[in-house]
Amino acid sequence: MTSWLLLATADAATGAAAGASEGGLFDLDATLPLMAVQVVLLTFILNALFFRPVGRAVEEREGYIATSKADAKQKLAQAERLASDLSEQLREARQAAQGLIVQAEQESDQLYREALAAAQAESIAVREQARSLIEAEKSTALAALREDADRLGSLIVDRLLAA
């Protein structure tokens, strides 16, 4: 086990000491600039294939979500306004109906009272008329009776006197 560890360190040491010809851990050579070029190229390729299209898709969706959210908010506000309008109207209509009911009750009450009063007055008048008629007939009848009685009396008196 130690053998290859020593080997590795020795190898690295020789690599570092002898420079590029021997290799080693810290062997800097043309790999460096070529790798840099490769990374830069990869950046451009990934930008074209990944970052731009995916970014566009994500941001379009974010925009879409934002606008539809705003839209929905607006619609919700509109619906709430309509609902409050309608409930206001409903309340007013209820009030109006209540008023109408009260008014109709009052009117029917009024009519009832008027009809009652009229009927009572009429009945009183009719009764009064009937009584006065009765009175009149009674008095005429009494008068007739008295007259008859007078006449009969005078007749009796005449007969008696004549006799």
Binding site: W4, A12, G15, G24, L25, A30, T31, L34, M35
Partner: peptide, 21 residues
Amino acid sequence: LEVGQQLYWQLGNLRVHGQVF
């Protein structure tokens, strides 16, 4: 296990580490 071993490619007079590429 090999440490510090490189597969060298010769490009003109440049040497690059083939295994890295």
